[in-house]
C-alpha cells in the first residue's frame, strides 16, 4: 500500500525543550490515522512539521512521497490543513473566504466553493460571516476550507475540541465521509472515544515521545487484562474474600474503604468466575461496573498517567 506520510526519527526542539523527541511512524494512503495524547504531548508540533510550518531539527519527513524540506510548495498545494484555532477574516462571508482561499492554489486543483459548502451542509449560510456560526458550524467550515484544493491528504488538528456531543458526532460523520471519498486523513485528538470511533490506526504520544502505534483493537489487546471492574461494597471485604478474589486471574487495588478496582485477565470466561466468586463469598455489593478496556486504560498502562483529567 502507498504511504501518505513517512516520519523517521523526527526531532524538534524549542531551545532545550524537546517538543518532539525521536518519533517514527507512517500513514498509509486511504486510512484515518489518529495521534492521541494529552495537551502538550507534541501532537500539534508534529502536524505543523508535516504542514511545513516548522522545519525538523533532525530526522526525515516525507508527505505524499515528497520531502517536506525540499518540496514545501507542492506539498502545500496537495494537502488540506485545518489548524487548531484558526479564525477567518471577520468581514468576508463564507463563500468569499473560500473563493479567496481557492485563489491561492493552482487552478487545476481548485474546488468549487459552493460545492464544498454543500458537502459540509453550510450551503444555506454561504452569505453569512464566520462569527455568526455556531461552534459546530465553525468547525465544519474550517474543514470545508481545508478541502478547497481537493487535497489527497487532510490534516485535522483537534477537529472536535470544545464541541458538544451532537456536533462531535456530526463532525465524525463528516470526516468518515471525506475519508470514504478517497482522502487520507490524519487527525489529533485527546478524546479516546474519538480515536476509537474514527481511526483505523492510532499513534499514542506523551511528552514528545511516541509510545505505541497500532489499530485500536490491537492496542487494547496488548494490555494484560481485558476488563476493568469497579466493585463497591457495603462493608469492606474480609481477608478471606480478597484472597478468594485473588484466586481469579486478577489484580485487586483498594481505591477507598469500600471500593475496589479489579483488573480482570482471561477474557470473558473470567467474568463468569468473578460473578460466581462474589456470590459464593457472600459479598454484599452496592455497585458493580464491568467495562471492557478502553484506550484510556491503554494510555494509563503505557504512561502511568491519565489521558484526561477527571471530569
Amino acid at each position: 500500500m502507498d504511504e501518505a506520510i513517512r516520519v523517521e526519527s523526527l526531532k524538534k526542539y524549542y531551545g532545550k525543550f524537546a517538543a518532539v523527541d525521536d518519533i517514527s511512524f507512517n500513514v498509509q494512503s486511504g486510512e484515518i490515522f489518529g495521534i492521541l495524547g494529552p495537551n502538550g504531548a507534541g501532537k500539534t508540533t508534529t502536524l505543523e512539521i508535516l504542514e511545513g510550518l516548522h522545519s525538523p531539527n533532525d530526522g526525515s519527513v516525507t508527505v505524499l512521497n515528497l520531502d517536506v524540506l525540499k518540496h514545501p510548495k507542492e506539498i502545500k498545494s496537495r494537502i488540506g490543513v485545518q489548524l487548531q484555532s484558526s479564525a477567518y477574516y471577520d468581514y468576508l462571508n463564507l463563500l468569499e473566504i473560500l473563493t479567496l482561499l481557492a485563489s491561492f492554489y493552482p487552478p487545476n486543483v481548485r474546488a468549487n466553493p459552493t460545492e464544498i459548502l454543500r458537502k459540509v451542509d453550510l450551503e444555506n449560510k454561504s452569505r453569512q460571516r464566520v462569527n455568526t456560526l455556531s461552534g459546530g458550524e465553525k468547525q465544519r467550515f474550517t474543514i470545508a476550507a481545508s478541502l478547497i484544493n481537493n487535497p489527497e491528504l487532510l490534516i485535522l488538528d483537534e477537529p472536535t475540541t470544545g464541541l458538544d456531543p451532537r456536533s462531535r458526532r456530526n463532525i465524525w460523520q463528516l470526516i468518515e465521509g471525506i475519508n470514504q471519498s478517497g482522502i487520507t486523513v490524519v487527525l489529533t485528538t485527546h478524546y479516546m472515544d474519538e480515536a476509537e470511533a474514527l481511526c483505523r490506526r492510532i499513534a499514542i504520544m506523551d511528552n514528545g515521545h511516541l509510545i505505541a502505534v497500532d489499530t485500536p483493537a490491537n492496542l487494547r489487546a496488548s494490555l494484560e487484562y481485558q476488563h476493568a471492574v469497579k466493585l463497591t461494597v457495603e462493608t469492606p471485604l474480609t481477608e478471606a474474600q480478597i484472597v478468594s478474589l485473588n484466586n481469579l486471574d486478577a489484580d485487586i487495588e483498594t481505591k477507598s474503604e469500600n471500593t475496589y478496582a479489579i483488573k480482570l485477565k482471561g477474557g470473558t470466561a473470567s467474568l463468569d468466575l468473578l460473578l460466581k466468586s462474589i456470590v459464593a463469598d457472600n459479598v454484599k455489593f452496592q455497585n458493580l461496573e464491568i467495562t471492557p478496556v478502553t484506550l484510556e486504560d491503554v494510555f494509563l498502562d503505557l504512561t502511568g498517567n491519565e489521558l484526561q483529567e477527571a471530569p
Binding site: 511545513g52 502545500k76 484558526s86 484544493n149
Partner: peptide, 13 residues
Amino acid sequence: NQSILKRMLVTPL
C-alpha cells in the same frame, strides 16, 4: 492573534 497568518502559511501562496 486569530491565526489567519498561520492559515495563509499552510497554503502555497
